[in-house]
Amino acid sequence: MNANEARDDLAYMRSLVADTEHSQRTFGETYLAAGLCYGVQMVLHGFQSLGWVSSERPVAPLISFGPTVVFVGLLMWILTQRRVPQAPTAVNRAVASVFGSVGLANLVLILLFGSIAWRQHSLLIWLIYPCVVMILQGMAWLVAASLRRRTWMSVVALGFFLTGVGMAFTLEIPPAYVAIAGVGMIAFMAVPGAVMMRQAHRSG
């Protein structure tokens, strides 16, 4: 191995463990926004199932569609902030690919579970879909933990796995199902997002 090859290998190894402030902050902000929006939505659905919040108009549509409207608005704001983009590292590209693939898989699963639930007229079948989403999120975080060698990311992955299993075991108990989903989204989406934002701020 000559000197040039050694330098190239060293640069590659550094890229495997390096994070850019820009990509980490953007990811953290997006995850925090999603966790808060949809976590609060699940909690409100839980309140509806207990009769503490109205399930009639105009409250019900606001709970069903409001969080998505808010999240899309926040996402547009996050993506259009004026930051100087940095060249993505190998790890950033790999992690982004994993989460991007999970997002695409989620869309396919919506069609899969949605079509079956509609044909069978079964809400129970549709409720399995969010459980699977939690498991896929856990898988993505497990890959990220392996690539970035962050123990706390493994904890997040485990949290998503437990959330998905907990939701599956409470499919027929709506208050428990939505409570587990809401707590899981806040604990394993919003909190990790905030952590990544704080880390990016420290390194910036």
Results as ranks from 00 to 15, higher is better:
residue 2 N to L: 10
residue 2 N to A: 10
residue 6 A to Y: 09
residue 6 A to P: 11
residue 9 D to Q: 14
residue 9 D to E: 15
residue 13 M to L: 15
residue 14 R to Q: 14
residue 15 S to R: 01
residue 16 L to N: 04
residue 18 A to H: 12
residue 21 E to G: 11
residue 23 S to T: 14
residue 25 R to L: 13
residue 26 T to E: 03
residue 28 G to F: 10
residue 29 E to G: 02
residue 29 E to L: 15
residue 29 E to C: 08
residue 30 T to E: 06
residue 30 T to H: 07
residue 32 L to F: 13
residue 34 A to R: 09
residue 34 A to V: 09
residue 35 G to W: 02
residue 36 L to V: 15
residue 36 L to K: 13
residue 36 L to F: 15
residue 37 C to W: 01
residue 38 Y to C: 00
residue 39 G to C: 03
residue 40 V to S: 12
residue 40 V to K: 08
residue 41 Q to E: 11
residue 41 Q to F: 07
residue 42 M to E: 13
residue 44 L to C: 14
residue 44 L to A: 13
residue 47 F to Y: 12
residue 48 Q to S: 01
residue 50 L to G: 03
residue 51 G to W: 02
residue 54 S to V: 00
residue 54 S to Q: 00
residue 55 S to T: 11
residue 59 V to Y: 03
residue 59 V to L: 08
residue 59 V to H: 07
residue 59 V to W: 07
residue 60 A to Q: 15
residue 61 P to N: 09
residue 63 I to T: 12
residue 63 I to P: 06
residue 64 S to N: 15
residue 69 V to W: 03
residue 70 V to S: 05
residue 76 M to Y: 08
residue 83 R to E: 12
residue 83 R to L: 06
residue 89 T to I: 05
residue 94 A to M: 15
residue 96 A to T: 10
residue 99 F to V: 03
residue 101 S to H: 04
residue 102 V to G: 01
residue 102 V to I: 07
residue 105 A to Y: 00
residue 111 L to D: 12
residue 112 L to R: 05
residue 114 G to Y: 00
residue 120 Q to D: 09
residue 121 H to Y: 10
residue 122 S to Q: 08
residue 122 S to I: 11
residue 122 S to M: 04
residue 122 S to D: 09
residue 127 L to C: 01
residue 128 I to M: 13
residue 128 I to S: 05
residue 129 Y to V: 07
residue 131 C to H: 02
residue 133 V to H: 05
residue 136 L to Y: 02
residue 138 G to K: 01
residue 139 M to S: 11
residue 141 W to I: 00
residue 142 L to C: 12
residue 143 V to L: 05
residue 144 A to P: 06
residue 144 A to T: 05
residue 144 A to K: 09
residue 146 S to C: 06
residue 150 R to Y: 12
residue 155 V to Q: 09
residue 157 A to N: 02
residue 159 G to A: 07
residue 159 G to S: 06
residue 160 F to L: 09
residue 164 G to Y: 05
residue 164 G to D: 05
residue 164 G to L: 02
residue 167 M to A: 06
residue 171 L to T: 05
residue 171 L to M: 11
residue 172 E to V: 08
residue 174 P to G: 02
residue 176 A to N: 08
residue 178 V to S: 04
residue 179 A to L: 14
residue 179 A to C: 07
residue 180 I to L: 05
residue 182 G to R: 00
residue 186 I to T: 08
residue 188 F to I: 02
residue 189 M to Y: 14
residue 189 M to G: 07
residue 191 V to S: 04
residue 192 P to Y: 11
residue 192 P to S: 11
residue 192 P to T: 10
residue 194 A to E: 08
residue 196 M to C: 03
residue 197 M to L: 04
residue 197 M to R: 07
residue 199 Q to C: 09
residue 199 Q to V: 06
residue 200 A to E: 11
